[in-house]
Design a binder for these strands. Structure first.
Lengths: 245, 245
DNA sequence: CGTACGATTGAGAGACTTCAACAAACGTGG
DNA sequence: CCACGTTTGTTGAAGTCTCTCAATCGTACG
């Protein structure tokens, strides 16, 4: 469905997201809203872009839940990041012409496809937006690094606490979380592939976190009764997200 | 020592590096060479920038060997990437004002400090260079992702084979490797912190790789008798480095 | 020629995996 | 609205990769 990002102008997810990491002028906000897009809905467990693709547009998440992953020769999967409304998981495709990983929908997601050409036109007219998007990709990289630390040096228990903290903070930054929790349509199997663990162990770690009163997880509803404690358990310091304020 | 990057113009490491990932016009090459820099030498095991720093310049590696790392509360260290001549490990500081990790010299290294202001001036005059540096940070991110895959889903043996492949390819791209090997001033302890392993296990894995005839490692001299085999052992596919050609 | 740092070895322990079975939750069609 | 099948979550037991501790060896360098 062709349109611009004007719909939901007030609470446009991209504007919310960009505002959370940088200051935008009115002109820049307008330029973003004027972007022509094609909105497409992806069902859960379908790919939005695949490893090896050469795409000519970027995918902006409007609603839903998305992840970046790669499948190894032996069939194992590593999830490298979760993306929520306002994120552009394949922004890199603007400068890296072949995708080196896949992007898939974890839940039914509405995606705005933005032509590279439209983005480039906008960035040429608004160099400051170019810097802001660059900044966004740098924050993406900072998240990869933080996950690396977890995978390399933190226990399963810490890792799980850490992702939950990250997701809560990011969801809150775009207005999708309550004060003490949010909705996470992520299965234990998906957590396993994100944290480099087996599904079985994820299950046990979640039970430990529950036993310790750090989380309440019913279905996809996450509640965090004691934020300080969960943060401490995961050694979570939001500095790497480089949010404003 | 103040100067510009003109010295070693022909084989300037930054030009070599940028040329390996994108095409530069003569004007752009000149703009790069005209960058005013301050050259500083860092001894092995000293920090170039520290976690939490707000710096006003970027560090270009001219010679030596550098890594990005973070120390955890319990003293554990995770190395998140190695940087070789031509790399700018903290290019992110141009847009992310507080460092979220440290950068340290693994061997005596000569570093060219480039003021953010000088870089910004150059990028404003040469928007294409801006895109090329953005591309560079995106490749950096791609390397983090590839390491994540290793940390999360590959065995110690595979991981070690994989880093060795990555380093050989990157060293060759800037002319610092022979056809079948290169010099890597990295201790087993540093490999351990990079691969999320213990030093002891790194030692055993290296012995396994030697036993299997995949590498010859004497001191810091790496030789790769059978490139195909090492690549296969590490499931190494250089696509994520996004080199030209 | 000692000292220090890096490499190597052995033995025991632990975190996490794999396999396999079962229970619960969910969506869908009749 | 219930029956049914598929997906997701849970549990137990055995196995393994990798860790920790601790000692020894090699070698470069002052």
């Amino acid at each position: 469905m062709k349109s611009t990002l004007h719909e939901q102008a007030a609470s446009n997810p991209l504007l919310r997201k960009l505002s959370s990491i940088a200051d935008l002028s009115d002109e820049e906000r307008q330029a973003v809203l004027d972007l022509p897009v094609t909105v497409k809905v992806f069902e859960a467990d379908t790919d939005i872009i695949q490893d090896g693709d050469r795409s000519s547009d970027c995918a902006l998440v409007l609603s839903g839940f998305v992840c970046r992953y790669k499948i190894l020769p032996d069939g194992k999967r590593q999830i490298m990041g979760f993306y929520i409304p306002g994120d552009i998981p394949d922004l890199q495709s603007l400068h890296l012409h072949v995708m080196d990983s896949s992007v898939g929908a974890l839940a039914r997601s509405s995606i705005a496809l933005i032509r590279h050409q439209s983005l480039r036109d906008m960035l040429r007219r608004h160099p400051n937006l170019s810097d802001i998007l660059w900044r966004d990709t740098l924050i993406d990289a900072a998240m990869f690094r933080e996950w690396m630390i977890g995978l390399g040096r933190r226990s399963a228990y810490q890792r799980m606490a850490h992702v939950l903290c990250e997701l809560q903070v990011r969801m809150k930054a775009v207005g999708l979380a309550r004060e003490n929790g949010c909705e996470l349509p992520i299965t234990q199997n998906e957590f396993a592939d994100a944290l480099g663990l087996s599904t079985v162990h994820v299950n046990r770690v979640l039970q430990d976190l529950r036993r310790d009163g750090l989380i309440v997880l019913r279905g996809s509803m996450l509640e965090i009764p004691n934020w300080e404690a969960l943060q401490a358990a995961g050694e979570f310091d939001p500095a790497y997200l480089h949010l404003k304020r």
